[in-house]
Design a protein around this nucleic acid. Structure first.
Lengths: 199, 199, 199, 199
DNA sequence: CTATAAGCGAGACGGTACGTCCCGTCTTAGA
DNA sequence: TCTAAGACGGGACGTACCGTCTCGCTTATAG
């Protein structure tokens, strides 16, 4: 994220923390005000009271910047649950995820990022890292715990289950065909569990 | 699709079929050569040997044009199967879908369209109509047939099943975390069927 | 003007008088509403309720059309005087000319026409014919009458005098440095007469 | 001319002198190659190897740019004479002016500028400043000198005389009815002097 | 206590594409 | 055959941002 700051030698004026934050804040603000597409680097720079070069210096693209500024903090709103049962855990996660992804320009930002990422493999993997991996790992942990408890089939392909789990959520978010409500969340979990349960 | 064809009156020079096609062809060509983002209306006009205005006259945006030019013809490559069993039908559809969506700049185009569509409800519903609805209806027919045959639970929520069916596919296509191969296709169907089957 | 209508044979639908006038009226109206530059053939056609082609059929350019529609009728507002003395005649003409050329978008139209005419010798000579020649001839007659009366030097170069007479008027109109008022009109005549008078 | 040079502050990258000149040169070149009307900002930018925006940044219109690029340097070709007599001075100025205004696309450029200027008071006064004022002031000086020498009537209205002096020249240039030759130049001076001389 | 080296704001710059306007030509149907 | 309507290729408009490039100023460490 925004290049490694732990440089061996450090001559010259050190990076301004104030400006770093101002840029991230401006980006987050603008992404809440308007759609990803309509947020320009130029506007971010102006809002942050910063030269464009300063942005380009630390972030390679609007996408990278947006991920750090906006997306990360959003992803963190879905913490790892521990209700004791796999059903409870998954329900919690799915309901929370639906809530978070329903908010504001979330869908616009995510699709925008995806669009940019399709052009750029590095960016795409960064995107996966930020938006996907951390939540997948969290759910992964939940599933492994359930396995240990003997709730789930021993031969479960966790990565594949994660695709089945998150797929419908993203699909609905992007298509906006129907709301990401609690009924949907519970339905997804209920439908997947039969194929996962032990016995 | 390129404005309504219900031309009650037909005064003035009629729309040129040649130019209509030239534009669609040029668009399709360019979308195969480069990413959605990098295809400009200007380039389409030049390739088609057409004035920009002529494009703007019939299509409101690059997205609308791209959908008509490129996407439609791609979607048609997934015909309705009839293997006799729900398992066979769904496997066929999913395998074909994976193949089609893996090709060329497909993912880039779709994400680009989605990005544009997030800004514009009209466009989004048009997008759903073109890319989603027709295939959903096709699968819907397959499921209803299986219902009549008694293969599936009578209380099945077909629309919801469709989300579960297509969700993982789109999720993988967009994230490019793993390939859309046959193993994946068969796995999705195998995982969903237990929760759908009668008895 | 607008091509000769007295064609020998006359098969097919005859030229519509209504539309001819509608075009001229629309042009005149628009030239009174806005500057020459800002009047487009397209706007004239629409205002006149006429196809563009109909305009192009009868007039070769906006300039030609404008001259016929607007300028001619203006020029006719400066009739030939006969006060009995050269001084009286010239004063009358100059005062009237100043009045007419001060009105509305007159200057804009004339400069616009001139601009177009600089590119096109045919148009320029047409312009001279419409705007210049008729008034020059009128003044020419006035001068010749005065010559016969013995008021003026016998060796007077009438064409040259006309340049001196009209030059300052156009110069002021175009530069708008100072108003085309009566003082100016009388001043011009008063200044030129000494060099023209007999004896 | 090209926005104020009174840059109190000078933050940011300074204006490129090279590009400033490249634009002016390109404009002058193009105005010598073709008519004012046919010179586009786009062509100027391309010829100068410059972005369009850079032009729009420093000049508000093609007219302003043309004046600075082309007209100014032309006007300077008519220096103030000092032959000792008013007749000699005026003859020199008029002959020179006729020569300069006869050259190339001069008439086209000037009429084009005038056409644009009729729409825009600011531009018109700028036009007067560039094309008119400096030469008028020069002639004004010549006349005042002659007044001091007692050659001219003490009550001479200099501004008015200037209209009489320059009017016929512009009139002929624009109408192209007759050439701006030496005979014409001498004729104008000869005709005006009687009304100006003292005694 | 300088020198050197970033970081930073400001903003000029070459460039690409945008969406619009109007040009002058064309192609229909109907008068 | 004329007309209204309007589609069409084309050219230029003026604007918005892109990413890069100077500048002068500021703020550090290294000599």
């Amino acid at each position: 994220m925004s290049t490694n700051p732990e440089c061996e030698k450090k001559r010259g004026r050190p990076r301004s923390e104030r400006c770093h934050n101002a840029i991230l804040d401006a980006t987050a603000e603008l992404l809440e005000e308007k759609r990803y597409r309509d947020v320009s680097i130029e506007a971010i720079a102006e809002r942050a009271g910063v030269g464009k070069q300063t942005i380009y210096k630390w972030w390679s693209s609007k996408a990278t910047l947006a991920m750090e500024a906006y997306a990360l903090r959003v992803m963190e709103r879905i913490p790892a649950p521990d209700t004791g049962t796999i059903e409870g855990d998954l329900n919690f996660i799915m309901i929370r995820s639906c809530q978070v992804l329903s908010q504001g320009h979330m869908a616009s930002t995510i699709t925008g990022l995806m669009g940019d990422a399709q052009s750029d493999p590095v960016l795409l993997s960064e995107f996966r890292g930020v938006f996907i991996a951390s939540r997948r790992e969290m759910v992964s942990g939940v599933l492994r715990r359930a396995l240990l408890r003997g709730e789930l089939r021993a031969d479960l392909d966790i990565q594949f289950v994660l695709d089945l789990f998150y797929g419908p959520l993203w699909y609905r978010m992007l298509l906006q065909r129907a709301p990401l409500d609690e009924a949907f969340a519970l339905g997804v979990v209920r439908s997947l569990l039969p194929g996962m349960k032990a016995g």
